[in-house]
Amino acid sequence: MSTSTPPQKTLSRIAANRLQKELSEWQINPPAGFKHRVTDNLQRWIIEVNGAPGTLYSCEQYQLQVDFPENYPMEAPQVIFIQQPPCHPHIYSNGHICLDILYDSWSPAMTVSSICISILSMLSSATQKARPPDNDRYVRNCRNGRSPKETRWWFHDDKV
């Protein structure tokens, strides 16, 4: 299982300020179904996800790991599931998530909170619990803790 530690530079001043803001905003108004596990590491957030009621994942709990690059928010954070990733057609067994906003479609206007909502929405719209068809091949290629941000993703499912 990869808990890939990307080669990280410390956060820039801009990134640190912005994350501080996001964190305080989160504390006042966290997205429903998520819980930030408090650490003293601003650069890596561990977030608990509770499957939304009435969906395939209700009453299930997962963990997201969000790592922020030096140039956040210009650059997207790296977001993966750790420990037991949910079984979902867009989530690989190594925790990598195929979601365009985390890669090509990232915009600095997005926040950890908006990412979380997107991920929960992706989980909630699943009609069956299954791994992506190319799971084994992908996971094999990702050994040595490769970051999902190095993957060239191909997004094609608009129905999520």
Partner: peptide, 19 residues
């Protein structure tokens, strides 16, 4: 518009970057 694609295009990925 702050909610750009919020909950939006989660799409199934196929890795094309074979190594």
């Amino acid at each position: 518009s702050l909610g750009i694609r919020k909950g939006g295009n989660a799409r199934r990925g196929v890795e094309v970057d074979d190594m």
